[in-house]
C-alpha cells in the first residue's frame, strides 16, 4: 500500500516551498581590506628603516627565516576571514593586499626613501 497522500498528488498547486534562510549580511569592504593590509605590511617590513638599510647590515628583528613568520600569520588570518561568509570581503581585500605588497615589493618604499634622503 502506498503512503502517498492522494490529495497532495492531485493538487494543481506546487507544494509550498520551505522558506530559504536569508543570506548572512556581508560585512567589510574589499578596498578597505586592500588598503589596510598593504599599509600594515609596509609598516611592518619597512617601519624600521634603519634596520633594513643596506649599510646597517639589515639589522632587523625580521632577519633570517623570521621574515616569513608575519607573512604566514597574515596569510592564515586573511584566509580564515575570506572563507567565512560574513567576513569574506575583508578577507579578500587582505589577501589582495598581500599580493600587492609582494608584487610591488620594497622598491616603492626603499627607493622613495633613498630619493628623499638625497634631497635632504
Amino acid at each position: 500500500m502506498s503512503d502517498d497522500n492522494p490529495e497532495e498528488a492531485w493538487s494543481p498547486l506546487p507544494p509550498p516551498r520551505e522558506e530559504e534562510p536569508p543570506p548572512e549580511p556581508r560585512r567589510g569592504s574589499i578596498l578597505l581590506g586592500i588598503l589596510l593590509g598593504t599599509t600594515a605590511l609596509y609598516a611592518l617590513y619597512f617601519g624600521t628603516t634603519r634596520g633594513i638599510a643596506p649599510d646597517e647590515g639589515y639589522k632587523t628583528f625580521l632577519a633570517g627565516p623570521a621574515a616569513l613568520i608575519p607573512i604566514g600569520a597574515y596569510l592564515a588570518i586573511a584566509g580564515a576571514l575570506a572563507i567565512r561568509p560574513r567576513t569574506s570581503r575583508w578577507g579578500a581585500g587582505l589577501l589582495i593586499g598581500l599580493g600587492v605588497f609582494i608584487l610591488l615589493g620594497g622598491g616603492i618604499c626603499v627607493m622613495a626613501l633613498s630619493q628623499m634622503s638625497r634631497r635632504i
Binding site: 607573512i71 584566509g79 575570506a82 569574506s88 579578500a92 589577501l95 589582495i96 598581500l98
Partner: peptide, 17 residues
Amino acid sequence: DPRLWPIAGFAVAFGAI
C-alpha cells in the same frame, strides 16, 4: 556569488608568493 572575490584574493596572494 560572494565567494568569487575571496577566490580572486587567493589567486593574487598565492600567485605573488
